[in-house]
Nucleic acid binder design. Sequence first.
DNA 1: CGGATTCTTGACTACGGTCAACGGAAGTGG
DNA 2: CCACTTCCGTTGACCGTAGTCAAGAATCCG
Lengths: 242, 242
Amino acid sequence: MTTKCVNCPLHRKDLFKTMTREELGYMQKFKVGELTVEPGTPILMEGSSAPQLYTALSGMGIRDMTLENGDRQVLSFVFPGDFIGLQVGVLGEMGHSVEARTHMRLCVFDRSEFWNFFRSHPSRGFDITWLAAVEEHFLGETLATIGQRNATEAIAWAMVRIFLRGQALGLVNNQTMEFPFTQKDLADALGLSLVHTNKTLARLKKKQLLSWSEGVLHIFDLDALAKVGVTSTDTPRKRPLM
Amino acid sequence: MTTKCVNCPLHRKDLFKTMTREELGYMQKFKVGELTVEPGTPILMEGSSAPQLYTALSGMGIRDMTLENGDRQVLSFVFPGDFIGLQVGVLGEMGHSVEARTHMRLCVFDRSEFWNFFRSHPSRGFDITWLAAVEEHFLGETLATIGQRNATEAIAWAMVRIFLRGQALGLVNNQTMEFPFTQKDLADALGLSLVHTNKTLARLKKKQLLSWSEGVLHIFDLDALAKVGVTSTDTPRKRPLM
DNA sequence: CGGATTCTTGACTACGGTCAACGGAAGTGG
DNA sequence: CCACTTCCGTTGACCGTAGTCAAGAATCCG
């Protein structure tokens, strides 16, 4: 009935362990259906207690939150395979919003079934916790970047991270991947102003480290880009950026 | 045999649901023992795959990570009831370090039992996921603070957040709570320099909003402090800081 | 009584923010 | 088909918040 969810971590049999036939059956029940959204569509809103959770099957999006003064912070970029709505599932309310940046296909789950799902299939529950831990890990790195690195380092770091993520997901072809975000998105993700982000990016482009236009990111030399932080300081780094 | 873990989220019966007798029995088995550490003691190291996980029973600590260039980022402060080592449990490796800042009592669990624990007691597994989601939520807020707020706002926000946390844990008496961290800790948590943190704090002190010395934090007017961000900008904030 | 650690304060500097203007691309409507 | 608008990227000029450097005070400790 439902199509197979190639990138859905909750449906992939090879993620950690194989699913039993019974588990697969339950997954099908837990899954409500699939949803397709266009660029710009809000998927989950900050503060909402939506009845549904998602998994990104294809396409990209953004997680962000808005401060009281209207400033926006982009928390992370959403890639295929990402679980969307953990906070709704366990806390009952989202702490941030999620919005599509490209055409996206989503695997839809029923929030009310979340707990049952967790209870009757601990191994899948464990997978979700795994995803949460990975997310926490990434957020920690991002925090360190925003807090400690300067603009050039931060942007180089972000591009490397994103590119590696893309590689792991098989989205990179010929050192090129789709990157459908705006410079403002990147600026808000790194706590920089749009103008400064633009100028810093221009410098990286002039150095032939990357090119990025019309939603396509091309990285010429990943290692060189990863080392950008090094050359900007005289103190040699203890550990490589990647 | 083992003493009761008053603050341990994995032992508290009132956290979400009551534990069955059988569950309690398992918890005792899962629990290895208790550990006491002195201020400055590293509990888990970044990159380590320690064989044990912890829950803070009393005392406070710090989660931090060190960049390649030696800069440090404090990710969060550890309070009683916090679970320490989720990343070791699920990912097999810590992405940050945890260090005691006061005398601490820890509830010790066996990492090798983690998965079994998860499988045989889904409700407790769910609790852990809940803790992870809360952590993610906090990290998101912190990210937004570091990325978007200026020094005064960030420090006021941090103090309010910490104080509220303390209140929720019953650590606040007479508008006063223990806060055994250094200004450098706070600076590294907010991505600010020590000097600037000191001067900004001095300004908040002069405004009679808070006092903090010798490990004791006193907040005179929580609401006023929470509004500090507002007065610094002419644009009125849409939502209160708390 | 040194030595170490933390806190404090002043002087100087620079990274990055703000303001402003322009260009190109894409969409809209008369 | 062409004004008009909107969104995004680009660049220059200026300025301010926060970083760096430096030195002194306070506390703790061996």
